[in-house]
Design a protein around this nucleic acid. Structure first.
Lengths: 245, 245
DNA sequence: TTTCTTAAAGTAAAAAGTACTATAACCAAA
DNA sequence: TTTGGTTATAGTACTTTTTACTTTAAGAAA
């Protein structure tokens, strides 16, 4: 136990001879793995770095956390700044703190993932990134820093998440067909499903409501449109719905 | 983009007028939610603080991360120091970064959880904590800082984890009965299971091997002992075993 | 030997999952 | 207007899994 200008903080590191101030020299950043779904492929939003280190290399968008902001607020700020969208689905998934992960010093980064309805948003390069774009998750270029690890963990996390919670609907427009959902599941889990059985399963969860609308401008029988019923899900939550396929 | 003694780091906070150094004044800590299973109840290891703030209040054991160590190493160090045990099951689950969570300044904490075979270990109070002990998860005292949140999230995480991965065996001795596992599941998930069906389900996962041994010193027919087969699990991993009950 | 507790196997009905087939709706080109 | 191609959607037969029980028997202790 040490008492000084930082107040008193437990730690049993007092044994080693680092000055106490050195324990308060961490940099903290937030990186956001942003997912979007486009015509049957699941994509991630990446930026191309405009300066060293890793100049011109692709990276997961992120920023330093300000000493004055909460961690979650920081993630929201980055997303807002990057996409201009509000009320995006965001969730923290893992923190990366390898000693040597950042050449500029000791920077620990907290990984968040976000799900955006990509129709709503076309990315534009801005002053802090030379380029920006969507990449198919099956074809990602080498990334800066330890961002390969971060991305891999983010995808892994989403794949697990999808089994127990209805998060996929955040990637779709408010009205969608059953085949849209199936395509999204197939793009994410990289496997094919039987159509009749898929629709039975997904309808049996009871959280989809059919609308009195069908597709338009299609060269075949138009599919019925559905929407996700959040309230229905909240009431059913107790009896663990299984979204596993 | 800013270049200075910290090297160059992306950030679009340059708009506000905080000196850049202020972005490198975070403290980082690790808190470990340590689970143990004792005679039908699931317990958590807590320490009683020996000094202000929150003097004499119970808390989740943790420590500041040294500038020279990796995040994961820090968690291992704390566990080693606290329990004297090596090769404990440890995993990161969430990072807590509310601006005002620590009165001593801006300290962000990374939550880890650990599973220990509690037979092996009886806690002893040491110089840095006035007391230490196991608490039933159904009866936890008010905790220091935001540790109530951390504990709640840790328990939640374990409950989810248990559905898809065979982590419970880390809480049991190497040889155990089927009823031991059932008791553990019941203590964790707070529900009762039908015995014959439970054993069918747990055996159907194929990762338990029966031993040629039975219980001793029991006042009834002794149960057969089993062990968890890690290798078998690794080979079956591909075909997602379901540990859901 | 009897009694008590618990392990462990069995069983029958219901539910869920799987792999299909069949039908009907719709568009577009002939 | 007809016809062919495509896709939504319903249905069906079969297998497997789950669920809620009952039964049997193995040990320990009185």
């Amino acid at each position: 136990m040490i008492n000084n200008k930082f107040g008193s903080v437990d730690h049993f590191l007092s044994e080693n001879n680092l000055p106490f101030e050195d324990f308060f020299r961490f940099g903290l950043s937030v990186d956001c793995v942003i997912f979007g779904y486009h015509h049957g492929t699941l994509k991630v939003l990446l930026i191309q770095r405009g300066a060293d280190p890793f100049k011109y290399q692709w990276a997961i968008p992120g920023d330093l956390v300000s000493p004055e902001e909460d961690l979650d607020s920081s993630a929201e700020r980055i997303l807002q700044h990057l996409t201009g969208l509000k009320d995006i689905y965001v969730e923290q998934f893992h923190t990366f703190g390898q000693r040597d992960r950042h050449p500029a010093g000791r920077v620990v980064t907290v990984g968040y993932f976000a799900l955006v309805e990509s129709e709503k948003y076309q990315p534009v390069a801005s002053h802090w990134a030379s380029d920006i774009g969507w990449f198919d998750i099956r074809n990602i270029p080498p990334l800066a820093f330890d961002h390969d690890d971060i991305l891999a963990k983010g995808i892994e996390f989403l794949r697990k998440k999808v089994r127990t919670e209805p998060v996929v609907f955040n990637l779709l427009p408010p009205k969608f067909t059953l085949l849209d959902i199936q395509g999204l599941y197939e793009a994410l889990l990289l496997e094919k499903f039987d159509k009749p059985n898929f629709r039975k399963k997904i309808l049996s969860t009871g959280v989809l409501v059919p609308l009195d609308e069908v597709q338009t401008n299609v060269a075949h029988r138009p599919a019925k449109l559905f929407r996700f019923d959040q309230e229905r899900y909240d009431t059913l939550k107790g009896n663990t719905i299984n979204f596993e396929l």
